[in-house]
Every structure is written in structure tokens, then in C-alpha cells.
């Protein structure tokens, strides 16, 4: 009986992964057919098989189809990922800390928040000229941009999380003798955590977007740089491979945050719609 139960579960898991694969597989097949039909010059829209080949060479360096980039994918991916990690890390620490302070103390809100709210609508990309002037052409302007992009969503969601924390829990904790610092650490922070995680997930998307943008203009390495450089050399297969790489890494980091989130918010299990997600 146990065996059949497991068997059924394995079957449903398999059919579920099929469900997920149907749409991408269909798109890839249609694209392959369309590219090979000769409707467009092959160089303008390389077929998925061509992209995959170039991508493979970029990663493993087997036949130098990707020319100067052959075998350098890992280094490119790492330099992009490092920028994301640095800028995002700074944004998480400062966004959560400042968000809690703004949400909790009215005087911090009154003094700090208006300034931040005026800076918020300025698109991070428009900081590029200043970032280059201040930090030169290297990692720093990219990290700065990543920070800007990730900081505001994390900040806003943290503020929201703190402000919507259940007052009754704070009352209960102060009944048990909690000091203000203990309230923040043991009640307000955990209560704001679901909201903070929402900010973290929006933030990581912005972080990848801005690393790539920065690498196109202000840095001479990374996936974004390869993408823009290949565009100048009309290597659209490499452009597409770079796009796919960025998508894949972005997806992977978001998946990582989701894993962290479900571990940290396991207590929501069974009480929210979100907990039904796989």
C-alpha cells in the first residue's frame, strides 16, 4: 500500500514537471522551426540549437564558436554575481535596519523618510553618469547601482511590515516585561519578516537588472558586458546566450531566496494561501 502511495506521488510529480515544461518546449520548437525556415537571415535570429552550441562553447570552450569568450562563462557569471551579492548585501542590511527604524520611531520617520521618498522615484539607471564620475569604471559603480535598485523595495516592504505588525502581540510582549529593544528583536522583526521577504524578492530582480545595465556601460566584464560587446560584433547567438544566462542566474537566486523564505516562515504553513505553493 505504501509502495503504491509512493508510486502515485512520483507519477504526479512527473506529470507536474511535464506541465511546467510544455510551454517552454513549444516556444523553443517553434523558434527553431522559424529560424531554419529562412524567413529572416540566420544571423539576426539564431536558432535555439545554434545559441545552445555557442553557449556551450562559452561555458566549456570546446571549439571557439564564441571566439574570445570561449571557456570564460564561469568567470563572467562570477563577476556579475559578485556585484549582485555586494550591492544586494548592502541593500538588505541597510534597507531592513532603516526600515525598522522608520516604521517604529515616529521621529525617524519624520526626519528621514521625506528625503528617501524624494530619491525613490529617481530611476537607478539615471545615476549612471554620477556613479561613473564618483567611482570610475570598475566594480564600484555597478555595486552602487545594484544597491540603489534593491534598497528601496526592501526598505518600503520593511516599513510596511513593521507598521502592520499586530499591536496586540506588542502588548502581550510588554506584559511579559519586554524592553523596547526586545520588542524590536523578538516581536516586530519576526512579525515584519513575511513583508521583508516580499521586498527581498523584488529587490533581487532589480539587482540583476541593474548589474547588467551597469556592465553594459560602466564595467568591462560580466554577463552584461559580453551581451553588449556581442551586439557590436553582431553575434546575436552570444547576445541570446547572455540573456539566457542572466535569466537563469536571476531565477536561481530568486529560488534560493524562496527556499530561505519557506524555512524562515515555516510557521505560516497551512495558514496562508502562499503556503500552498510548492
Amino acid at each position: 500500500m505504501n509502495m503504491t502511495g509512493q508510486g502515485i506521488r512520483a507519477m504526479t510529480a512527473l506529470s507536474k514537471s511535464w506541465e511546467r515544461a510544455v510551454v517552454p518546449l513549444f516556444i523553443l520548437a517553434a523558434w527553431e522551426v522559424f529560424s531554419r525556415s529562412g524567413f529572416l537571415p540566420a544571423a539576426l535570429l539564431p536558432a535555439p540549437s545554434v545559441v545552445l552550441h555557442t553557449w556551450g562553447d562559452w561555458i566549456f570552450g570546446f571549439d571557439e564558436t564564441s571566439q574570445g569568450n570561449t571557456g570564460r562563462w564561469l568567470a563572467d557569471a562570477l563577476s556579475s554575481a559578485t556585484r549582485v551579492a555586494a550591492g544586494y548585501g548592502i541593500a538588505v542590511v541597510s534597507g531592513v535596519a532603516l526600515g525598522i527604524a522608520i516604521g517604529w520611531w515616529r521621529w525617524v520617520e519624520r526626519t528621514v523618510e521625506p528625503t528617501l521618498q524624494m530619491l525613490r522615484p529617481v530611476p537607478p539607471v539615471s545615476w549612471i553618469p554620477l556613479a561613473i564620475i564618483w567611482f570610475g569604471i570598475a566594480n564600484k559603480p555597478a555595486i552602487f547601482l545594484v544597491f540603489l535598485g534593491a534598497f528601496f523595495p526592501i526598505l518600503m516592504n520593511t516599513i510596511h511590515g513593521v507598521k502592520t505588525a499586530d499591536r496586540n502581540l506588542i502588548r502581550a510582549a510588554s506584559m511579559m516585561g519586554a524592553t523596547e529593544q526586545q520588542l524590536l528583536r523578538h516581536v516586530v522583526f519576526p512579525a515584519a519578516l513575511p513583508s521583508i521577504f516580499a521586498g527581498l524578492r523584488i529587490g533581487i530582480g532589480a539587482a540583476w537588472m541593474l548589474t547588467v545595465t551597469a556592465e553594459m556601460v560602466a564595467v568591462k566584464s560580466g554577463l552584461g558586458y559580453v551581451l553588449w560587446d556581442s551586439y557590436y560584433f553582431l553575434r546575436y547567438d552570444l547576445v541570446l546566450a547572455a540573456m539566457a544566462s542572466i535569466g537563469l542566474l536571476g531565477y536561481a537566486t530568486d529560488a534560493l531566496i524562496k527556499v530561505l523564505m519557506s524555512a524562515a516562515l515555516h510557521w505560516q504553513h497551512g495558514s496562508t494561501l502562499q503556503s500552498r505553493e510548492g
Binding site: 502581540l169 502588548r171 510582549a173 511579559m176 510557521w267 495558514s271
Partner: peptide
């Protein structure tokens, strides 16, 4: 001000939803 010399039981239990039962009991 509120303090641990007076224990209060509220109309809604007001438990910390992220803590298991025993951690809620021993929150103090």
C-alpha cells in the same frame, strides 16, 4: 506601565505565530 508582575490573558490569545507552543509559554 506593563510588567511581568501582572500576567494578562487577552480576549484573543495573542500568541506569537512564529513560535511553537512551548516557546510561547516560555516567552518571558
Amino acid at each position: 506601565g506593563p510588567g511581568a508582575d501582572r500576567g494578562m490573558v487577552f480576549q484573543q490569545a495573542n500568541l506569537m505565530p512564529w513560535l511553537p507552543v512551548w516557546e510561547n509559554v516560555a516567552f518571558h
